[in-house]
Design a protein around this nucleic acid. Structure first.
Lengths: 192, 192
DNA sequence: CGATTCTTTGAAAACAGTCAATCTGTGTGG
DNA sequence: CCACACAGATTGACTGTTTTCAAAGAATCG
């Protein structure tokens, strides 16, 4: 499954063979069964995780026991908890697999080494950061501006594949509405 | 007012005198009167802006003419539209001053030059990016999880100075509720 | 001081949430 | 392979919160 990662990397930046070998040398492949945790709330997160197969979610649980999903990550995207990683603090999030998945883990020290030794890699990481931030801003905008129906339609439009891939209650959680509300919203949308 | 910027920079990283001179050479100071635009929706944004005095807001206007504020920026923080800056696309946002303000503008080309020539500066920029992303994630969590009252209390706690500094209707817009709701929420909170 | 904008208040309507019951689909063990 | 159990999704009735619309009071600015 590391081939997926190589493809991803080489499509974005041009690397020498040595550079790729270096990257590969610090990659840890890990399989996750559906439901399995990659990170549990309270633990410290030490990696960057790239998903080569499957789908993960990062979420928090509030005082009332309700889950709130911050992110879905599928193949060719990254997962992890930046806050815990950078500050070394216990994570507020849990991450688990919602499908059988395969991820590539790179330890923070190794990742930093790659960033320092491979300028192209640094660029790539930076672009990802920028994109993530821009996407977060969009999501904030949607969260504070849109009705439940608009949020749902916006999600379907933005992530066409995902809306049929993740369970509805998780989609509801991601959108910040109850499963019941999502169900009703979908009914209305269907009739149009 | 450039002294504010120098203080900010030198508190975060150690620079040689030449490096600071280089930075200073590309800084453009601009005063903004209350209400004045720094960026108007539809324009392309070419800068990074550091606020040395005052307070700015970045916002969008929806189809119904309602403003939705994505960000407040006060002294010692940054403003701008990353999306437009990086992709060269017309901005979806407007940025204007909600107090008489002073900002330092650095053109994108100059900023990139600084990042390339001054490793410490690159680090600083990266840390800011990371922090912004972490903060955005927190805000998303709040937006999808909290009630109006909790959002308000959360804001007051997180930005104690700001809640009395920005007009209430703007605070409401930032939180994603109507001014009326915020007004009522505040009443309830006062009585406790 | 007058005009404008902002904030608050009130009442009604729209919207989303809750609770409970039913329906559906999936996976498991017999 | 079937039947059953279980979780997820939907539906209905109700409650509660937030919005909307309208108007009055407060603050701000020229």
């Amino acid at each position: 499954m590391i081939a997926v990662f190589k493809k991803y990397i080489t499509e974005k930046v041009t690397l020498t063979e040595q550079e790729w070998t270096l990257i590969q040398s610090v990659c840890i492949e890990r399989k996750l069964r559906k439901q399995q945790y990659l990170l549990q709330e309270g633990d410290v997160w030490h990696y960057n995780a790239f998903i080569t197969k499957g789908c993960l979610r990062r979420y928090r649980i509030d005082d009332k026991g309700v889950e709130h999903i911050l992110q879905f990550s599928v193949e060719n995207w990254w997962a992890g908890d930046r806050d815990s990683l950078i500050n070394g603090t216990p994570s507020k999030y849990s991450i688990d697999a919602i499908e059988d998945s395969v991820v590539i883990l790179i330890r923070k020290e190794d990742f930093d080494m790659l960033v320092n030794r491979i300028p192209e890699f640094r660029n790539l990481v930076n672009i990802i950061l920028e994109k993530s931030l821009i996407a977060s801003q969009e999501r904030i905008h949607d969260a504070i501006s849109l009705t439940a129906e608009e949020k749902y339609l916006g999600f379907v439009e933005r992530y066409p594949g995902l809306s049929n891939r993740v369970p509805r209650r998780m989609l509801a959680s991601y959108l910040g509405v109850t499963p019941e509300t999502l169900s009703r919203v979908r009914q209305v949308v269907m009739k149009k």
